[in-house]
Design a protein around this nucleic acid. Structure first.
Lengths: 338, 338
DNA sequence: AAATCCACCGGTAACGTTCTCGGTGAATTT
DNA sequence: AAATTCACCGAGAACGTTACCGGTGGATTT
């Protein structure tokens, strides 16, 4: 029993003027007198007129919709990035269609394939970690759809990207551990093949090299991003004969997992074994001992990527930009030998 | 430089048949032979045809879009509910347009006013806590747009609602504190005027009455939902001459705030002062002492509300349902006197 | 006074799709 | 053999909006 919404025709009919004039009046473009314009606007308000985006989208070949594709939304980082995106989109009157892939490459592909670009102006995406090929993104870009990657970017695709400074953050985190007297530093990393996993790994390795610290293959463990993964990784490390005395985790959730495992073993986190994470998830301040970390500018990343996308949309042939935002070391209890 | 996507006309032209036939073939409806159907589908695949939702939406007056309006997405509860919603929407090929209000009633109103119902099949909403009037929702429902409320519902509006069992959860939480020997139980509540704030308050009050425990006005504090609010509320409670020996918080974030404040004052949480929360935010397991809580079925709430909305959309004149899902007491360290 | 200009408005086609209806020819019934 | 049915297909209108172009009448120029 859906009520018929007032259309532009209804306004025209009520005012006994033409449809074209109403259209022009509503958009406040050329060729319409102030008087009729006022008449139209008043009548529009009176009839509770709402523009039909399907119709405008059809003729203008542009809706005000952006799609965002994320691995998941139930964690601090992505939900904060999304909030940033939303903030910019809202202020520019764009709507956001959100898809979550659950970090499943198959689902990601399926979502992409079913995307209707006729009702989409652009695409913001952070790729799934089980990334297979990225050809589907390339196709979209070749079709002329503006795409911006953030955080988890597809390396070999030429379009705008925005991310945090993963390399330097990891470098700083590792250096901080070294400065605090830890000598055998492990790294529990993310899944292989993801750009930022590599960057953080390299930052870690270079910090070790720069300071003449030992690098052990066994001290580097790749797995997923969850707390549980962190717990498992820590268990593995502790089974080693040559145990590390500190660990740099690729993110805070894994670092929290590491701390949980260490506490279970009655090992004094900070004193016996140092831990540092990456993200500045609120959890890092709550856990005790509290977790040192590299704060990521998640909100800014969201805002920046959305702004970039809007630029892409406005100017065709926009030159892709890569933006890298710096992180910030936050020292708490877990990395201090006192 | 956006490439022209293949349309139904292109397929028709390439096959030298009529547009109508192609349309029917693609939708697999009546009056089309198996042969031509195959021809059409093959050609569609070959031309990389994608349906234009603006066009279908225009003629069918129905898109496959759902709008979700949330106070915020950066917390466990809402992000999990959203994931549930997304799960159902995805399996039914619906897209979700997500709006976050930042718990700002003005922004909520503005979003609602600008909603284009011509490109929306339905609406899922959890209202902002600074709720003023809810007339704007009533208008939408009167216009025949299917709306489902969840969690933070608008009490006096007749449409489907799904929520957790706030009253019984609060009752159980409070009873649990009593059973563990706490005698002076405070409640740090949510903002007044919100349905579930009231329900949890009432559950708390009834549990006290049932057990003949004292009720003090000063032990009940209303404020926002953040951890900071929880910290402030706890500070206030501790300034009282007649201090409580336990506190039931309206959610886990506030409970965490309370624990943080108590720890700062070197008060033994659990032993000296009991604390229990509501939600089962992952944080509750991380903080130490770990936080007892009532686990909310957030994911199920999301799924259920989306299912309900889809039912609304399918059958016009669907009779509104109110669904209440039970919570579950989870006992951890913060509420045990041992 | 004729020619030109300008502000304003209307008619029509188009966007991509679906729906309704009418029209084929072949197969089946009488 | 005529009448009826049936499976299949096409033509045209419609959805709500914008873009394009042409046409008014009045004011300004020459």
């Amino acid at each position: 029993m859906r009520r018929h919404y007032a259309t532009i025709k209804d306004i025209a009919h009520a005012l006994n003027i033409s449809v074209s004039t109403v259209s022009r009046a509503l958009r406040d473009t050329y060729d319409v007198s102030a008087d009729t314009r006022k008449l139209v606007l008043d009548m529009a308000a009176k009839l509770n007129y709402k523009p039909n985006f399907n119709a405008t989208g059809l003729v203008k070949n542009s809706t005000h919709n952006l799609a965002v594709i994320l691995p998941g939304i139930t964690n601090y980082y992505f939900s904060t990035v999304f909030t940033g995106i939303q903030e910019i989109a809202y202020s520019h009157n764009y709507n956001i269609i959100l898809y979550v892939t659950n970090d499943d490459a198959g689902r990601e592909l399926n979502i992409i394939r079913n995307l209707s670009f006729s009702s989409l102006d652009g695409l913001l995406v952070s790729v799934s970690s089980q990334a297979g090929s990225c050809d589907h993104f390339q196709e979209i870009i070749d079709d002329g759809i503006p795409v911006v990657f953030f955080d988890r970017v597809a390396a070999d695709i030429r379009t705008s990207k925005v991310m945090q400074d993963d390399y330097n953050g990891a470098f700083e985190a590792t250096t901080h551990l070294i400065a605090n007297g830890y000598k055998k530093i492990a790294h529990i990393a993310g899944p292989e093949g993801l750009t930022f996993t590599d960057s953080r790994l390299n930052g870690y390795l270079d910090a070790l090299r720069r300071n003449g610290m030992p690098i052990r293959k066994k001290w580097i463990i790749h797995s997923g991003f969850t707390q549980e993964c962190g717990e498992n990784d820590m268990e593995k490390l502790w089974k080693l004969n040559d145990k590390p005395d500190a660990v740099f985790a690729v993110n805070d959730r894994k670092a929290v997992g590491a701390i949980v495992t260490l506490k279970k073993k009655n090992i004094a986190v900070g004193k016996d074994v140092g831990v540092i994470g990456f993200t500045n998830d609120p959890m890092s301040a709550i856990i005790s001992p509290s977790l040192s970390t590299i704060a990521e500018p998640a909100f800014e990343i969201g805002k920046k990527s959305c702004q970039l996308l809007l630029n892409h949309i406005k100017k065709k042939n926009f030159i892709p930009e890569e933006i890298i935002l710096p992180g910030k070391l936050i020292v708490r209890e877990s990395s201090i030998r006192s």
